[in-house]
Design a protein around this nucleic acid. Sequence first.
DNA 1: ATCCGGATCGCCT
DNA 2: GGCGATCCGGATG
Length: 236
Amino acid sequence: MAARGTEVRPGRAPLGPRTAVDLDLSPLPRRFFSRPTLEVARDLLGRLLVRRLGDRLVGGWIVEAEAYIGEEDPACHAAVGRTERNTVMYGPSGHAYVYFSYGQHHCVNVVTGGRGRPEAVLIRALQPAIGQEFMRRRRGARTAELDLTRGPGRLCQALGIDLCLNGAKFHAAADPSAPLALARGRGRPEILGVSARIGIRRGLEYPWRFYDAESPWVSRARPIGSRSGVLKKNPG
DNA sequence: ATCCGGATCGCCT
DNA sequence: GGCGATCCGGATG
């Protein structure tokens, strides 16, 4: 099992140069979603989540994600078995599981695990990349850049994601009929952070939250369980 | 029909 | 860091 902490990777500067490569809108292959859910969760970091609103695209780089893995995971919505609410998680991977939380917020997941295995990755935070002016229209004109998409409820509000998109398939961003898409984007962060998942009561023993340890858009700078709040750059 | 808890956020202190 | 808002899904009667 992966340990809590961070992992250093060589390469691109953390908040690095904004190049055309960072905005790579080419689609993720179908097999992307058919891998083990923990692998998909890590690999979603740096990818682009894109929402099409009419002819406009709004989206950002995923900087934080959490895995929820099946009926045996006490924090997974499928821990109570199959219900009408969680039924999308039991379907094919590569679709969106959207739910409503605390009376005011939507949260979006990428379904993984394949038919009959209710697994998903919750997208917890984005760095805005495309259509910030539309995000502000939804989040409030004076919303700080950092507050547009930091947190699962905020990012859904910024991108206009609600229960209407529950079950929608993630298509290619170039598909003019696709309301939701995932694209290659800039890829993995330089420093991968790992921690327990946030906002849950059970399942805290599983380090299934992954984040870009250098991104200020991560929803909580200090992961649960970190003592100092200082992330090590060279754990080895 | 009614009750209750929740993968949260924003505002207050 | 505490708390109220607010509504949906699921469980119970």
